[in-house]
């Protein structure tokens, strides 16, 4: 295994009965990388993360983390992993402080020994250190869970959907914390169903139905969209969508907030042709702008190819 590789997954397959949860997945994560798995519920993200954290064995394939085999070397491997599961898994009836001490203790260390690493995150909840974990707000629970996953100074941090069900503001704050954390050189893999979070990662894997559709930097994925994309806006957004679908040159039309993102069957169709069609169908205040595709545009494009 090359020395700059932290995680190397080869041909991982996992079935639950008839259901193929992971279908021949291979990828590498470099040391110090912030690597994202982007995909909806049921894509296989949690199954993959449980395999990486040695909690589950794949039916086929192999996985090395920092040179350790997830099957044979699981005892050693667990010592260098920090894992934040999707569901809040700390002790609700212990205080903030007690949880941190407990998780440090499991790894034969103390909060004091590694305080530097968690300081930025833990300082937000330190004023509430005597409060029971079960009594914390969602955002504070998340900060405590992240502190507990980090307190033994792991080499690889595995975060399973840390921002699911979290409001827009707390999501941004969480990614700001990860940004600071990556400076310490730790390898971070994170999963999320929010497509807009992809841009915060060094590289991402777009995952759907147990398959990786694409692995690359967010910019490269956007560049590979491969065709012109237009944002169309008008007064009546719902009829705009149905009318655009009936337009002869429409390939895809998806709502994005107050716009419809439109791709066309031919690059020779001009915006003025779209505008005149919409004028004829009675739309008012039509605006058409050429845009760069987002990761979500790319994800939907790939979903339709599969």
């Amino acid at each position: 295994m090359p020395t700059n590789i932290s995680i190397q997954a080869s041909h991982i397959t996992k079935r639950y009965g008839d259901k193929l949860a992971l279908d021949d997945i291979s990828f590498d994560v470099k040391k110090g990388e912030l690597f994202g798995f982007i995909g909806p519920d049921g894509a296989g993200k949690t199954t993959l993360f449980r395999i990486i954290t040695t909690l589950l064995l794949p039916d086929n394939g192999s996985l090395l983390v920092e040179g350790l085999d997830s099957d044979k070397d699981y005892v050693k491997l667990r010592k260098i992993l920090g894992y934040m599961p999707g569901r809040f898994s700390l002790y609700q009836d212990l205080t903030v402080e007690e949880n941190l001490r407990f998780f440090a203790g499991i790894f034969h260390t103390t909060p004091e020994a590694n305080y530097e690493l968690v300081k930025d995150i833990y300082s937000h909840i330190e004023p509430f250190k005597k409060r029971k974990a079960g009594k914390l707000s969602g955002g504070m629970k998340q900060k405590l869970a992240l502190s507990c996953a980090l307190i033994h100074k792991p080499e690889v941090l595995v975060l399973d959907e840390p921002t699911t069900g979290v409001d827009a503001v707390s999501r941004i704050e969480f990614w700001e914390m990860l940004d600071k954390l990556r400076m310490s050189g730790i390898t971070i893999i994170v999963s999320t169903p929010y497509m807009d979070e992809a841009s915060r990662c060094d590289r991402v894997a777009l995952i759907q139905n147990g398959k990786i559709m694409s692995i690359d930097t967010p910019d490269a994925i956007r560049r590979n969209y491969g065709r012109a994309l237009w944002a169309v806006k008008a007064d009546d957004i719902y009829n705009l969508l149905t009318d655009l679908r009936l337009f002869k040159a429409t390939r895809t039309a998806f709502p994005f907030g107050e716009h419809i993102h439109l791709s066309l069957t031919s690059d020779s169709v001009t915006p003025s042709e779209i505008a005149s069609y919409l004028k004829d169908t009675g739309h008012r205040n039509v605006q058409i702008t050429r845009i760069e595709p987002s990761i979500e545009d790319c994800f939907m494009e790939m979903m339709q190819k599969v």
């Binding site: 995909g39 909806p40 519920d41 894509a43 699911t164 069900g165 169903p193 497509m195 759907q208 719902y238 969508l241 998806f254 709502p255 979500e296 994800f299 939907m300 979903m303 339709q304």
Partner: peptide
């Protein structure tokens, strides 16, 4: 209550059409 949480981007949009 958060009907589209974690749903794939195409289904999420179809869901809103059903809402309309």
């Amino acid at each position: 209550d958060e009907p589209t949480g974690g749903v794939d981007p195409i289904t999420r949009r179809q869901f809103w059409e059903i809402i309309y």
